[in-house]
Amino acid sequence: MSPVESLPPPVSDSCATTCWCGSAHAGARHSLWQARRAFLQLGGSTVAAAAVPAWAQVQVGEASRLRHLVPAEDLEQAANQQYAQLIQQAQSKGALVAPNDPQTQRLHRIAKALIPHTYAWNERARNWQWAVALIRSDDVNAFCMPGGKIAFFTGIIQKLQLTDDEIAMVMGHEMAHALREHSREQLAKNSATSLGISLGAQLLGLGDVGNYAARLGGQLLSLRFSRNDESDADLVGLEIAARAGYNPQAAVALWEKMGNATGNNANGLSFLSTHPSGPERIRELQRNVPSVQGLYQAARRSR
Rank of each mutant, 00 (worst) to 15 (best):
T18Q: 11
L40N: 02
E5K: 15
A54K: 14
A16M: 13
L204G: 04
R36P: 03
G263A: 11
Q202F: 07
P9Q: 06
G259M: 00
N288G: 08
L220F: 09
Q286P: 02
G207P: 00
E174N: 02
D229G: 02
M171G: 01
A38Q: 02
L86R: 13
R124M: 11
E181N: 12
G147M: 05
F225A: 03
Y296V: 07
A253R: 12
L221M: 15
P99T: 08
N267D: 12
A176D: 00
N247I: 06
Q202D: 10
L272K: 04
A111S: 02
R136D: 14
G218Q: 14
F143A: 10
I135F: 08
A251K: 07
N100F: 04
I157L: 15
D164Q: 06
S273T: 09
L238N: 07
A90D: 06
S45V: 12
R287S: 04
A24E: 15
S92I: 05
L272Y: 07
R215W: 11
R243N: 12
L7N: 03
G210P: 01
F153E: 09
P116G: 14
R37N: 01
Q161K: 15
A214E: 01
V11F: 11
G268N: 02
E76Q: 10
Q91W: 06
A213D: 09
E123D: 11
R65T: 01
L75A: 10
A242S: 07
Q77V: 12
H275S: 10
G44V: 04
A63K: 07
K149N: 13
L269T: 04
D13G: 15
E230K: 05
S2R: 13
N122S: 15
H117S: 09
M171H: 00
A84L: 04
A98L: 06
M175P: 08
P276V: 06
V236G: 08
A48R: 14
H30R: 15
D165Y: 00
I282Y: 05
F39L: 03
R126P: 09
D101M: 07
P71N: 13
Q41S: 14
